[in-house]
Amino acid sequence: MRLTNNDHIPQNYEKMEDRELVHLFRKKDDQLAFRELMNRHQAKVYSYIFSMIQNREIANDIFQETFTKVITKMDDTYNEQGKWIAWVMRIAHNATIDHIRKQKRFVDVTSSYDDESKTDFYERLPDEDSIGQHEKLELDESTSSLLKHIGNLPEEQRTVVMLRHYYEMPFKEIAELTNVSINTALGRMRYALINLRKMFDEEHEKEQSNL
């Protein structure tokens, strides 16, 4: 059955808890239940991926990869004891981190001097303002400014910030998701806030000097 946007999700689905919807989808292959689940959580999942990658096209690919995995692995790897969305976020997080690590490897391999373009690795690095122009247009100014700063944080700190703020995930769950102790997760959050404060201050100073 192909669902379109016009498919109406019954009201009782909206009142159901995630686990009930998951059960309906798993046992009865109820696609409306899955649609409702996606409606509830897609923005948070997408926001997390986008804030980590800061590129629409790649974020789209990872988002698609995440939900394809979710739907194909739901019967095998998801046990209904845990929160469904925490399981989805784990898949999204792993896919995102995999991509970031692949990118890093790519950068390492090509970090030497390029004869053809007569540039070295540092010249080929993307601009500091890493969010593309068309992405900037779609987001409001404060969000894109915040995302830019968050994008400049080290990957580990960025992960904790995004999971806490976009997903409102408790630090205990963040620690489990990222395979670190709760103290490490809290420490990363602390350093992230300290770094963000510096960035906000610098930005403020720039704005003042421009005036």
């Binding site: 897609q42 804030s51 629409r56 969000t143």
Partner: peptide
């Protein structure tokens, strides 16, 4: 300030 971050919707 971080809580001001708005969720980014995936394209339709």
């Amino acid at each position: 300030r971080l809580f001001e971050l708005k969720a980014v919707q995936p394209p339709e």
